[in-house]
């Protein structure tokens, strides 16, 4: 993780703070405000939702991270925790909700089902991963992941937001006028969704197969 630069010489900063003057950069302040008050969208789909609820309960308290306020409306939320299996029937609604969220918005893909279809991968109605249609920031493996895993993912997301710059090439999507913030909503087709995936976001991984016919993927 890059150390935060405050733009001012460190010794001067210490002297000033002893006098009761606090210096920082606009970027640090902006990021600090956003990391400590992420409002998730009330969006549990399946079993992982119960672990998400357990994370907000008294034992694994998520309120101490500033994320206690789960908003029912996507217009007021900035984090969507996709917790549970996304089925093809549900996928257009997930994407539509994501489009309705205002920027900056983040997605945590919680659980094996939301990452890649999980144990229900051989399903005619299961979407093999929500990252086929919306960009995902953090993936949490597990079936279901423990509440501590969700808290760890939350802290990773906070770190990621902390490192975002306001200007420059690597600035995030919401500060870049060229990047889209709404993604194509699939429609119900006769046999499958149309389109089956968003080609700008997700490319199918190809299995490397050697000439002898055995599977060598993962070997490089």
């Amino acid at each position: 993780m890059q150390p935060r630069t405050s733009g001012v010489d460190e010794k001067l900063k210490n002297e000033l703070s002893k006098q009761g003057i606090f210096t920082t950069t606009l970027q640090n302040l902006y990021n600090w405000g956003r990391t400590n008050s992420i409002w998730p969208l009330n969006f549990g789909l399946a079993c992982c939702a119960i672990e998400m609820i357990a994370t907000t309960m008294a034992r694994y308290d998520m309120a101490r991270f500033g994320a206690e306020v789960f908003r029912p409306s996507p217009r007021q939320a900035d984090l969507m925790i996709v917790a549970g299996t996304v089925t093809k029937k549900m996928a257009p609604l997930v994407v539509r909700l994501y489009n309705q969220m205002p920027e900056p918005k983040y997605v945590i893909s919680m659980g094996a089902c939301a990452i890649s279809g999980g144990p229900f991968k051989q399903g005619y109605n299961v979407l093999k991963g929500i990252d086929r249609f919306i960009p995902v920031d953090i993936y949490i493996p597990g079936c279901p992941p423990r509440p501590e895993a969700l808290l760890d993912a939350f802290m990773e997301l906070q770190k990621k937001i902390d490192e975002q710059t306001l200007t420059g090439e690597k600035r995030p999507r919401h500060l870049n006028a060229g990047e889209p913030s709404e993604f194509v909503v699939p429609r119900y087709g006769a046999h499958d969704l149309e389109p089956t995936k968003n080609p700008n976001l997700w490319k199918a991984p190809l299995v490397q197969i050697s000439q002898a016919g055995t599977d060598e993927s993962g070997s490089h």
């Binding site: 890649s116 279809g117 991968k121 051989q122 399903g123 005619y124 093999k128 046999h191 499958d192 089956t196 995936k197 199918a204 991984p205 299995v207 599977d215 993927s217 993962g218």
Partner: peptide, 12 residues
């Protein structure tokens, strides 16, 4: 099933 470009590290 429709072809969903499933990925498995050890496909069979």
């Amino acid at each position: 099933d429709p072809d969903d470009y499933e990925y498995e590290p050890t496909a069979h």
